[in-house]
Lab assay of single mutants.
Amino acid sequence: KELVLVLYDYQEKSPREVTVKKGDILTLLNSTNKDWWKVEVDDSQGFIPAAYLKKL
């Protein structure tokens, strides 16, 4: 599985998104959309702007 590093805090703005903190390491589930990547946070899944993430 691929991991990503969160570069900036992000507060979810819709139920399909997730809240993350700078420095979090998350599992990347889908990066086919260049603007929004799907990640797994704890036991939930959701989208975060790709610009907030860096592949490890």
Rank of each mutant, 00 (worst) to 15 (best):
K1F: 12
K1E: 08
K1R: 14
K1S: 09
K1P: 12
E2D: 11
L3T: 07
L3Y: 15
L3V: 07
L3K: 12
V4C: 10
V4G: 03
V4E: 00
V4N: 00
V4S: 01
L5E: 09
L5D: 00
L5T: 04
L5N: 00
L5S: 03
V6L: 02
V6F: 01
V6R: 01
V6Y: 02
V6W: 02
L7E: 01
L7D: 00
L7C: 07
L7F: 02
Y8F: 13
Y8L: 09
Y8K: 14
Y8N: 09
Y8W: 12
Y8T: 07
D9M: 04
D9L: 03
D9A: 06
D9I: 04
Y10A: 02
Y10Q: 01
Y10F: 06
Y10S: 01
Y10N: 01
Y10P: 00
Q11V: 14
Q11T: 14
Q11N: 13
Q11L: 11
Q11K: 13
Q11W: 13
E12P: 15
E12I: 15
E12G: 15
E12D: 07
E12W: 15
E12V: 15
E12M: 15
E12Q: 15
K13P: 05
K13D: 06
K13I: 07
K13Y: 08
K13F: 10
S14I: 06
S14A: 09
S14E: 08
P15M: 08
P15N: 11
P15W: 08
R16V: 10
R16K: 11
R16L: 13
R16S: 12
R16M: 12
R16W: 15
R16F: 14
E17L: 08
E17W: 07
V18F: 15
V18M: 14
V18T: 06
V18S: 04
V18R: 06
V18D: 01
V18G: 03
V18N: 03
V18C: 09
V18H: 04
T19P: 02
T19E: 04
T19A: 06
V20H: 03
V20M: 03
V20P: 00
V20E: 01
V20G: 03
V20L: 05
V20D: 00
V20K: 01
K21G: 04
K21C: 11
K21W: 09
K22A: 13
K22Y: 04
K22D: 02
K22C: 06
G23H: 04
G23Y: 04
G23R: 02
G23Q: 02
G23T: 02
G23L: 02
D24E: 11
D24C: 07
D24N: 08
D24H: 06
D24P: 01
I25S: 01
I25H: 03
I25E: 01
I25M: 05
I25P: 00
L26D: 00
L26K: 01
L26Y: 05
L26V: 11
L26E: 00
T27M: 10
L28W: 02
L28C: 07
L28F: 02
L28D: 00
L29V: 11
L29W: 04
L29M: 06
L29T: 04
L29P: 00
L29E: 01
L29S: 03
N30L: 09
N30H: 06
N30C: 13
N30M: 08
N30I: 07
N30K: 06
S31C: 13
S31Q: 08
T32A: 11
T32N: 12
T32H: 10
N33H: 11
N33S: 09
N33Y: 07
N33T: 05
N33W: 07
K34R: 12
K34W: 07
K34L: 09
K34N: 11
K34C: 11
D35T: 14
D35P: 02
D35L: 14
W36F: 07
W36P: 00
W36E: 04
W36D: 01
W37E: 00
W37D: 00
W37F: 04
W37R: 01
W37Y: 04
W37C: 03
K38S: 08
K38C: 14
K38P: 01
K38Q: 14
K38R: 10
V39D: 00
V39T: 01
V39A: 01
E40F: 06
E40M: 13
E40H: 06
E40L: 12
V41W: 08
V41S: 13
V41D: 05
V41E: 02
D42M: 12
D42F: 12
D42Y: 11
D42L: 12
D42I: 08
D43T: 11
D43H: 12
D43W: 06
D43Q: 13
D43L: 09
D43M: 11
S44A: 14
S44Q: 15
S44V: 15
S44F: 14
Q45V: 14
Q45M: 10
Q45P: 09
Q45L: 07
Q45S: 13
Q45T: 13
G46P: 08
G46Y: 15
G46F: 15
F47S: 03
F47W: 15
F47L: 07
F47K: 02
F47H: 05
F47I: 06
I48V: 15
I48P: 02
I48H: 01
I48L: 13
I48M: 13
I48A: 13
I48F: 02
P49E: 03
P49G: 03
A50P: 07
A50C: 08
A50R: 11
A50Y: 03
A50W: 04
A50I: 05
A51M: 12
A51Y: 12
A51N: 12
A51P: 07
A51E: 10
A51Q: 11
Y52V: 12
Y52Q: 03
Y52W: 07
Y52E: 01
Y52P: 00
Y52K: 04
L53R: 00
L53N: 00
L53G: 04
L53I: 05
L53S: 02
K54Y: 11
K54L: 13
K55W: 07
K55D: 03
K55P: 08
K55N: 05
K55R: 13
L56Y: 08
L56I: 13
L56A: 03
L56R: 02
L56C: 12
